[in-house]
Design a protein around this nucleic acid. Structure first.
Length: 214
DNA sequence: AATAAGGCCAACCGCTCTTTA
DNA sequence: GTAAAGAGCGGTTGGCCTTAT
């Protein structure tokens, strides 16, 4: 037996919310709150909407503390790093970004960050998909421009190429024309590196290697 | 100027999880 | 312990807007 629908789909309005509907919902919630029951809310508030639709509209758009658009590089960085660690756990990722909703974060990832990260990911994947000749593998160095894409660069730096269980240590080496920083025997449990070292924020390249414990 | 293509984002759908009776 | 109902979540879609041809 399937679940009963939450409302009669033929009797509720769908599509974009009008300013009047927004105001009605805001006024009702201001006076009465949700009452702990979104499904029962629309008829009480005088709205011809599904309760889930009201909840979504409030949480993603009408709440007073919501921020829209204009993601900062710091926010991008947090999203990239957390997505690397957690995957598509949008609500968890959004909980680290005050004023951002899961929907906003998801949209930002799908429209901006994913594309930004994809070419870099491909390069790294090519580096690591070679057969492992021995206990360790030194991949070729791929130059990345850290001036324009530091959040993506940092996410890649913090990303393991293989399952954690097959790795004992990971070495990351950052280079530019004047500096080299080697995070030799970089323990897996220290992920993620919180920020890119200052001297490597412009025109650095990244080289990663690891010890395979299997 | 007209049209097509692509980007963006609000909103919906359907599923799982949690709560309650 | 079980079933029903609500809440929450992530994937996807549709339509508006902008940019390119």
């Amino acid at each position: 037996m399937g679940r009963a629908p939450c409302c009669d789909k033929t009797k509720v309005k769908k599509g974009p919310w009008s300013p009047d509907e927004d105001q009605t919902l805001k006024d009702y919630l201001h006076k009465h709150g949700t009452g702990g029951n979104w499904i029962a809310l629309p008829p009480k508030a005088g709205l011809k909407r599904c309760g889930k639709s009201c909840r979504l509209r409030w949480l993603n758009y009408l709440r007073p503390d919501i921020k829209h658009g204009g993601f900062t590089e710091e926010e991008d960085n947090i999203i990239c790093t957390l997505h690397t660690k957690l995957g598509s756990r949008w609500s968890v990722i959004a909980s680290h970004l005050p004023g951002r909703t899961d929907n906003d974060v998801k949209n930002h990832w799908n429209t901006k960050l994913k594309k930004k990260l994809l070419p870099l990911k491909t390069n790294i994947a090519n580096t690591f998909n070679n057969p492992i000749p021995s206990m360790s593998l030194l991949p070729k160095t791929e130059p990345y421009n850290t001036t324009t894409n530091n959040s993506s660069f940092l996410a890649l730096l913090n990303q393991s190429p293989l399952s954690m269980s097959s790795l004992t240590n990971l070495t990351c080496e950052l280079n530019n024309t004047t500096n080299t920083q080697s995070l030799t025997n970089y323990p897996i449990h220290q992920y993620p590196l919180p920020e890119l070292p200052e001297q490597f924020k412009f025109g650095a390249s990244l080289k990663k290697s690891y010890v395979n414990s299997s």
